[in-house]
């Protein structure tokens, strides 16, 4: 069995299987892959590569999608 590794997803620490791919992570998080963008260590991934890119300890993953927004944006 693969061991667990620590990664960062959308700014939060999280563990995943050592042999997991980005696609596995998205499935685990129940994120539908249509209309999402994934950045792995600042590199934007092609959707067709999600299942081929494996995760390494310390990887930073950002998962983004579209939200309501207009001529203006709520300030944070």
């Amino acid at each position: 069995m693969a061991e667990a590794i620590q990664i960062q997803v959308n700014g939060e620490q999280r563990s995943c299987r050592a042999d997991a791919t980005v696609g596995d992570l998205l499935r685990e998080l129940a994120v539908k892959t249509e209309r999402v963008a994934v950045e792995l260590n600042l590199e934007i991934l092609d959707r067709k590569d999600f299942d081929h890119r494996s995760l390494k300890p310390g990887d930073r993953v950002e998962i983004l999608s579209f939200i309501g927004g207009g001529a203006e944006e709520l300030r944070h």
């Binding site: 959308n10 994120v31 999402v36 963008a37 998962i63 983004l64 999608s65 579209f66 939200i67 309501g68």
Partner: peptide, 19 residues
């Protein structure tokens, strides 16, 4: 219609998506 790009809420997946 314009939309913004933001982090997906990964802690609460029950949230609906605008699209």
């Amino acid at each position: 219609v314009t939309v913004a790009v933001r982090r997906v809420n990964i802690t609460d997946r029950s949230k609906e998506n605008l699209l």
